[in-house]
């Protein structure tokens, strides 16, 4: 008979991996330590928990990365998009979750110094959904700035299309878009 999971197990499995590891390391040998180790093992053994963890980790990382990127850009930090040779924080292969791919902080070399993409979550199919924040020279102003591309499907209707938007829907507007000088 397979193991049964109650709310406490699921909550433990959804906790950040680093936190579980820290608790496991600090706990004396015994039921408490075993519980943390079991939760850690289950995080990778159960496919749906593993997928959920990846998405959670991606969101944690992305929200932090976007904030750090804004701070770095507004303070004139050189080579903001230089991680992993310009391929970004998640490397050349990005992070694949099902039919989606997430990339963070990668350079756009041909566009010049400090041009790149802060966050790009895309559905890997033609005309698929995209959520994207870029930094580079803008057509309208001719100056460096942030730009978002949002394209998604809802109830069979496609929103955003290939149109670019320099406005940000209020529900998606992070506060840092106003701070750039």
């Amino acid at each position: 008979m397979g193991s049964q999971y109650d709310d406490r197990n699921v909550l433990a499995m959804l906790a950040p991996t680093w936190l579980l590891k820290e608790y496991a390391a600090k706990s004396p040998n015994g039921p408490q330590k075993w519980a943390y180790q079991t939760a850690l093992a289950n995080q990778s053994d159960l496919p749906f928990i593993a997928s959920l963890r990846k998405i959670q980790d991606a969101v944690y990382v992305a929200s932090g990365v976007v904030g750090v990127a804004d701070l770095a850009i507004s303070n004139g930090v050189i080579d903001v998009f230089g991680a992993n040779g310009g391929y970004g924080l998640l490397g050349r292969d990005g992070l694949k979750i099902g039919n989606y791919r997430l990339d963070l902080m990668y350079a756009n070399p041909s566009a010049g110094e400090n041009a790149g993409t802060i966050f790009f979550l895309k559905q890997l199919e033609k005309g698929g959904a995209q959520f994207r924040w870029d930094y580079g020279v803008l057509h309208k102003s001719g100056e460096m700035g942030l730009h978002s591309t949002i394209r998604f499907h809802w109830n069979g209707v496609k929103y955003g299309s290939a149109a670019q938007r320099t406005w940000y829907p209020s529900s998606l507007k992070p506060p840092f878009f106003n701070t750039l000088k």
């Binding site: 041909s110 566009a111 870029d134 803008l138 057509h139 700035g145 730009h147 290939a162 149109a163 670019q164």
Partner: peptide
Amino acid sequence: FVVFKGAEDDVVW
């Protein structure tokens, strides 16, 4: 000439 993409994917630079 270098034709490239920038921050906006509907703009040709």
